[in-house]
Every structure is written in C-alpha cells, then in structure tokens.
Amino acid sequence: MPKYILDRRRFLRRTGQAVLGLTLGGQVAFFDPDRSWAIVLETLDQAAARALLAMTRTLFPHPALGDEYYAVVVEALDAEAGQDDAVRKLLQDGVARLDRARQLAFADLSPGTRTQVLREMEDEPFFQKVRSATVFHFYNNKLVWRHFGYEGSSWEFGGYLRRGFQDLGWLPDPPPEASPAPYFG
C-alpha cells in the first residue's frame, strides 16, 4: 500500500482550499495541492486530518517548513488510531472540541487564535498526545534535520575525525594539555 502519493498529475487540483481530501477506492487521501504530497488515511477522516495538521503546525511552528513535514505526524496518529481504539476516540473527540472551540473550524482560525485555543486545553490528554507525537515524529525526520543543520548518521563517513569535529574557527585552539592532538592511525 502506498504510504505517500507523490504523483502530481493524478492528484493536483487547484482550489481555494489549503488542503484537499479525495476518495480513492474506499480510502481517503489527504494532500496539499501546492506541494504535491499526500498521505493515505486509514482511520481518521479528512476533517480530523485537517484539524490535526493545523494543530501540529501551531504547536511547533517552523515557518520555513512545509505542511508535508507536519503531515508525517498526522499519518502516524492515523496509524495509531487504527491500532488502538482508545487513541482513535481520544483524537476524534479532541478534534471535535478543536473544531467547536470557536465558530469556525480550527484549521480556519488565525495562528494567534489557534494558539489561544490550544492553550486552553494544554492539560488535557488529547493535547498531550498530539504534542508528544509531534515532538517525536516531526523532529525524527531526516529531512527536517537538514533544516536544523543537523547532519545525522556519521559513522559511514568515518565519523567527524577528518570532517570538522574541531573546525570551530572563532576561538583559539585549547593547549595540548587540555586537548591533545587527534590520533589518525
């Protein structure tokens, strides 16, 4: 089963909406027309996915990162909801409350209002669940690491021994008693 559907021609539809849903052979695909990413929802519906996407973004906003990175979290929550009824209920009820909090759907609120809505539910299990899922799944994405300048796995390149573990140039080198010369073999 495809996890990500990246075929632009098949799925791209320009509309005024930020995020689209589409039914494909019984499953609901959820995607962003501007960035040609999509996730397949197994359990949650489009409205829930849309609210959760807005929530993850409001929780950990990085303006330079597109929705596709946040969609990874929604996909993980959807998968968990499919395996665990308690999680499904927690998410569905939580989303319902998000969408009722003001007179508009949560995703249609301004970033400031969304933040306020979330602040009001900070102590609730639903909030905690989505927050911790976002911390885990969003920041555990190798593509997101690039944005932070984090280089990830290094052993396959021989570590940093010859690749800049001491390349900081804005301070003088400590004396050899404090920091002996490296051993290169």
Binding site: Y160, F165, Q166, D167, L168, L171, D173, P174, A178, S179, P180, A181, P182, Y183
Partner: peptide
Amino acid sequence: GLPGNNNFK
C-alpha cells in the same frame, strides 16, 4: 587524553 571537539572548545 582525547582531542577536544567544537563543543569542548
């Protein structure tokens, strides 16, 4: 001793 890295510097 080990050589110090950037964090150590």
